[in-house]
Design a protein around this nucleic acid. Structure first.
Length: 571
RNA sequence: GCCCCCAUAGUUAAACGGAUAUAACGGAAGUUUCCUAAACUUUUGUUGGUGGUUCGAUUCCGCCUGGGGGUGCCA
């Protein structure tokens, strides 16, 4: 398909040689107000080099672009050149492409031969999978899907929090107060109970903390009793996690968590020693980062056991050797910003130039109205409960509205889960937010159900069109004239932008760019739907409009798919 | 103390350094003999303060205020 920004860039370059075609293309804007054209080229920056007033330059550029048949109209307005596309050839080009490519529209091969690792979700074993975990899980899944769509080779890693002193605590608590049958019956809640009790008791008796550290040290050195208990906790927890992953439609290529690297720790310590990066301080071993403005990185504790920073370093080195990644992405809360800065710096100090390919993608904090979530205090909202309630409420709405669907259960699941995911991906990931039941169960306005509903509407029209198939002949430019109104054209423009939007979402690691665009397309579609009748008697007009409906449906479906949300055909 | 992030209508949020700051929710008023009213139309209302850089700042830089997070033996 034609890349208009590029074409305009080239044309500007021919008119003003001091600017390369690429530089010119970079400057091309899409005006907020459609009455100022489909594209605009601001001339301020040229004023200095050309020693002319911007409006004068705009006039010259406009004159130079004027003869191009792709542009219906080119006007100089003050310092801007406003460019109006020839709508018929634009629509013909777009609709031909989208109806041919369908689900492949927007796909790219730019990532061919490059491997991208996406680490996401990474819950802690033996702790509840709560609403705070949804962010990493859902953002990571979307980033994986976006990179996959852009042609990259992807590896999805669930870096389970299955190691560390917390397991010492858990084991100590289980031995003191635990019952096997309770754990088997309800693993996570029971184990969490032990964990909470441990902290209560440790307040009165600080010796428990030391005991827990000692038990973890035994676990790390491979003691059979501790290892068996740990394996059992891990297994029971994974059963629960997988139930949630299935609901969300999320999968992983690897569950290599922290424990996976336990036997690789010594190698890291040796390499750090070799490089002379380690020194002893207060009984612990550290890498001093003072000259980089950071507190020291604690590599081992005074009892010799490791910390998670050591495991993250080991993991990154292992991944570089094992996968030879192009990018190694970590979808982890912004609370860990310093942690990531520290260990990536350590990797760099070890002489690894690929340190810069390790990217921390932070996101904001989820809190409850009562305050921050606290596993220890048992102040959590379970993700599974959120998903179940969203599905339940959707089911009620479906029955109430008497919705046209083949399976109430299936649709309730698609829409309920989709609503939760959509909301999670609607805003910039860095923003903090306060969880509220009222908000998450609201399905009106800019929400997942709105976009899905629009998709279902488009699907419904195509069903009503019985047997209609897009044909290239009916999309020739001369046959489109006078058929398409303003709302149709504005919808088409948004569909055209989708491939660029997907690339931007990938570059910025920001799925919300796609979420917002999906809403824009849905709004434009609904406007078009209300203003114009689609299944009209005139064959030529009907063909063109149906092609646009199909293109809109395709664009919405692709957007939702990249976000990890299903697009029901009926609802 | 030091470091990082955030601050936009009543609320929740958008906005590659560009033209008149964009939506949704809420409030007010409408649209269903018409392809799905989970829809659409109209209306209401916004850049925390202060300096600077720039032809142009919600956006970049400095300071201030407010909120959140981090800061050596948890992850």
């Amino acid at each position: 398909m034609k890349e208009y920004k590029q074409l305009i860039g080239e044309a500007v370059h021919r008119a003003v040689e001091t600017l390369t075609a690429e530089e010119a293309a970079e400057l091309v804007e899409i005006p907020t107000d459609a009455s100022m054209g489909d594209y605009a080229f601001p001339c301020f920056k040229l004023a200095k080099a050309l020693r002319k007033a911007p409006p004068a330059i705009a006039g010259e550029v406009a004159a130079a672009l004027g003869g191009n048949p792709l542009f219906a109209r080119v006007e100089a307005v003050n310092a801007y050149v406003n460019i109006f596309l020839d709508r018929c050839s634009f629509l013909s080009d777009l609709l031909t492409q989208v109806t041919e490519q369908q689900g492949r529209f927007g796909r790219s091969e730019e990532g061919a031969g490059r491997k991208v690792i996406v680490e996401y979700s990474s819950p802690n074993i033996a702790k509840p999978f709560h609403i705070g975990h949804i962010r990493s899980t859902v953002i990571g899944n979307a980033i994986y899907r976006i990179y996959d769509f852009l042609g990259y080779d992807t590896v999805r890693i669930n870096h389970l929090g299955d190691y560390g002193t917390q397991f010492g605590k858990m084991i100590v608590a289980y031995r003191k107060w635990g019952k096997k049958e309770d754990v088997t019956r309800e693993p996570i809640k029971t184990l969490l109970g032990y964990y909470v009790k441990f902290h209560e008791e440790a307040e009165k008796d600080p010796a428990l903390e030391d005991e827990a550290r000692a038990v973890f040290a035994r676990l790390e050195s491979g003691a059979p009793e501790e290892t068996a208990l740990w394996e059992w906790f891990r297994e029971e927890s994974l059963k629960e996690f997988n139930r949630v992953y299935r609901m969300l439609g999320i999968e992983f290529d690897s569950y290599a968590g922290e424990s996976f690297y336990s036997d690789k720790m010594q190698g890291v310590l040796d390499r750090l020693e070799e490089k002379g990066l380690i020194r002893e301080s207060e009984g612990a071993r550290i890498v001093d980062l003072e000259e980089y403005g950071m507190p020291p990185a604690l590599i081992t504790k005074k009892d010799g056991s490791t910390l998670y920073i050591t495991r993250d370093i080991a993991a990154a080195i292992y991944r570089k050797e094992h996968y030879d990644f192009y990018k190694n992405l970590y979808i982890v809360a912004s609370q860990q910003n310093l942690h990531f800065q520290q260990w990536i710096k350590v990797i760099e100090l070890m002489g690894n130039s690929w340190a810069e390919d390790c990217v921390h993608i932070p996101f904001g904090l989820v809190s409850l109205e009562e305050g921050t979530m606290s596993t220890r205090k048992g102040r959590v909202v379970y993700l599974e409960e959120v998903l179940n309630r969203a599905v339940e409420q959707t089911r009620e709405i479906i029955l109430e509205k008497n919705v046209n669907t083949d399976s109430v259960e299936e649709t309730a699941r698609q829409v309920g889960i989709g609503a939760v995911i959509f909301q999670e991906l609607a805003n910039n990931r860095i923003k903090d937010y306060v969880f509220s039941w009222e908000k998450i169960l609201n399905f009106e306005g800019e929400t997942g159900p709105y976009v899905q509903y629009t998709h279902a509407r488009a699907a419904s029209i195509l069903r009503n069109a019985e047997g209609w198939k897009p044909s290239a002949a009916s999309l020739e430019p001369q046959r489109l004239s006078a058929i398409m109104g303003e709302s149709a054209y504005q919808l088409a423009r948004l569909i055209y932008q989708l491939p660029r939007i997907i690339r931007e979402a990938g570059e910025r690691y920001e799925p919300s760019v796609i979420t917002r665009h999906a809403v824009d397309i849905a709004q434009a579609f609904n406007r078009f739907y209300h203003e114009e009748h689609i299944l009209v008697p005139d064959e030529e007009e009907k063909n063109a409009k149906l092609a646009l409906v199909l293109a809109a449906k395709t664009a919405i479906q692709t957007s939702l798919r990249l976000l990890g949300i299903e697009a029901p055909e009926k609802m």
